[in-house]
Amino acid sequence: MVSQQPTPYSRPEHAAQEIIRLAALMAQLRNPEGGCPWDLEQTPETIAPYAIEEAYEVLDAIQRQDWQAFPDELGDLLLQVVYQSQLAREAGQFDLATVARMVTEKMIRRHPHVTFGPEVLGREPTHVNTATPAQALPAQWEALKEQERRKLVEDGQSGGALAGVPPMLPALLRAAKIAGRAARVGFDWPDVSGVVAKVHEEIDEFTVELEKGDKDRMQDELGDVLFSLASLARRLDLDPEACLRQACDKFTRRFEAVESKLARQGLSMQDRPVEELDKLWQDVKHEQG
C-alpha cells in the first residue's frame, strides 16, 4: 500500500503517524530476525558521516530551489535522526521520544515571548506572554543560550564559552562560531576595522614564513589567515562557508567558460601559455560580470 503523499494541509496527527511508521521501519531493519544485514552491522560512528552528507544535500536543494526534491532530501536527513535514536535505544541510552522531548523543551525555554497551548505544554498555559519585537529576538535567543551554557559550566558539564562547538564542523564555520562565542564574552575588536587590520597582520606573518620556506610554519600562519577571515565574515554577518561556496561556484563557471572558448578553437589549457589563459580569464570575467 502506497502512503498518501504529504501536502501542506496535512494535520499534525498525520505527521505523527508517519514518524511512528518510520521508527517502526527502522526497528525492523535493525531486528536480528529478518532485518537488513547491512543495517545490522552499522554503529553510531559508521553512519554519522551520512548525516553530514544528507545535510549538505538539503542545503543544495534549497540553493537550487528544487522544491520537488526538497521533501525527499529532508526525509533522508530525518532518517539519520531516527537511525541514531534506534541505535541509542538498543544501547539503553535514549530513544526517539527523548530526542523529540528534549528539543521541544529547549525551544519552549528559548521562546519565552510565545504562549504555547496545551498541545505543546501538555497542560494549560499559566500565563500569556507579552509580545517581543522581532528585531529583539536574535539577542534574546543568544542570551538564553548563554544562560544555558553558564548553567552547564556551574554544573560541571561544560568547559566554558567555547564548549559545545562541534570539532567536526566544516573548519570555516567552526572558526566563525568560535569567534562568535569569544565575542559574546567580550573577546572582540570594538569595530570591524580592527578585524580587517588583524587579517592584514596575519597575511604579513604568513608572508614572512613563506619566504623562509618552512611548511609547518606556513601551515600554522595560513591557518591564522583563514581564521581571521572567518572572524571578519562573522563580524559582517556573513556565512564564511557560503562565501567560499559562492567563490567556488564562480571559479567553476569561469574556468569552464575558458575551457569552452579553447575547445571551440580545438585547443586545451595544457597547450596554452599562462599569459593567454589569464587573458581569456579576464575576458570571461568581463562577460559574466
Rank of each mutant, 00 (worst) to 15 (best):
A16L: 12
Y9D: 15
T252Q: 15
T104H: 09
T132N: 10
Q282F: 02
T43A: 05
G34M: 05
P6S: 15
F187N: 07
E241G: 12
E119Y: 08
L22I: 00
R272M: 11
A134M: 11
G213A: 10
H14N: 10
E45N: 04
H14Q: 15
D39E: 13
D283G: 08
E45D: 05
Q84G: 06
E142P: 00
H14P: 01
E124Y: 05
E33K: 11
G117I: 01
A23G: 02
E205F: 05
K279F: 03
A27E: 07
D76L: 07
K177V: 06
P240W: 04
V2H: 14
C243N: 05
W141R: 13
L226E: 03
Q4R: 14
E201D: 15
V82F: 02
P71A: 10
D72S: 09
D60P: 00
Q265K: 13
A247M: 06
V103A: 15
Q282R: 12
V195C: 11
A97I: 00
L137P: 00
W141C: 08
E146M: 12
G223W: 00
E57S: 14
E18H: 01
A136K: 12
Q93R: 12
L137K: 15
P190I: 04
D66F: 08
R235Y: 01
M26Q: 06
E146P: 00
Q42H: 03
A16V: 07
F187M: 15
R64A: 15
T207Q: 15
F70R: 06
V153H: 06
A24G: 05
M168C: 05
D271Q: 05
L144F: 04
V196Q: 12
L232A: 04
K285A: 08
P190C: 07
D220A: 09
V185H: 13
R264V: 02
F94K: 10
P170R: 07
H127N: 09
K151R: 12
G156P: 00
E202H: 04
I20H: 09
L78D: 03
T46C: 10
A139R: 06
R123W: 08
W189C: 05
A176N: 01
L262T: 03
D155C: 07
A69S: 13
G164I: 01
E18A: 04
G75D: 04
P32Y: 06
E105D: 15
Q63I: 02
E148Q: 13
E241V: 02
Y83E: 04
V199W: 07
A182Q: 11
A55H: 07
T7L: 14
A197G: 11
F255I: 02
Y50E: 11
T126E: 12
G160D: 08
E124H: 09
D188Y: 01
A15H: 11
A139W: 03
D237Q: 13
G75S: 11
Q157P: 00
S260T: 09
A51P: 00
D283K: 05
V185C: 06
E105A: 14
P12R: 10
L74D: 01
A163R: 08
K151A: 14
E54K: 06
T115R: 08
E256N: 12
